[in-house]
Amino acid sequence: MSILGFLDKYGDKLIKAIGVHLQYVFISVTIGLVIALILGILLSRVPKISKIVIPIIGVFQTIPGLVFIGVLFIYLGMKPITVIIALSIYAIFPILKNTYTGIVNVDESLKEAARGCGMSNVQILFKIELPLAMGAIFSGVRMSTIYTVSWAVLAAMIGLGGLGEFVYRGIDTNNKVLIIGGALPAAILAIILGLFIDFIQNRITPRGLKGGK
């Protein structure tokens, strides 16, 4: 089947699936980002505790997404919220870890200079630590986004659409074209979203933080 033939037959479905997929990714990464930022900031205040807590959170990351969505499905049923919760939780960790290390790695002498200037802790956080951790936070967001694009394929496992639907149906019916028709757009989506995040990062990073240091 040619590409045009494929698009002719499945075009509408494909666009709808991409839309659903993007929704999953966007909502989950947004929720993940908010939670991760808050947790990352809080953990950076207590580095001693964080050295224990962060590896423990990291362990959850290693639970296969398939298992996790399956378990949530049992409790929450076949609703989009099941997928969103699962993906959000997976989106948290890369951002959380990078937010934490980004903040903790801010040069001690800069923090001392800021304190010496008479900044309060909150001012140091928002004017110095977070801006300087921005690069690390962005790479966390990029990582989470790209992961989430691929994990969102699992949504179809519990019948909730997205590009995974093509893949699963393709596997069920032994239709290679359908499998590729779902996998390829997912890969392209991941690349495009990654580039988009790079673009935004590049736009908002001040010149003083670019280039080398």
Binding site: D107, S109, E112, A113, A114, L132
Partner: peptide
């Protein structure tokens, strides 16, 4: 307050 490491904030002009 002036320190040896200078400590100018790199994200600010």
């Amino acid at each position: 307050y002036v320190i040896q490491q200078i400590g100018l904030f790199p994200n600010m002009t």
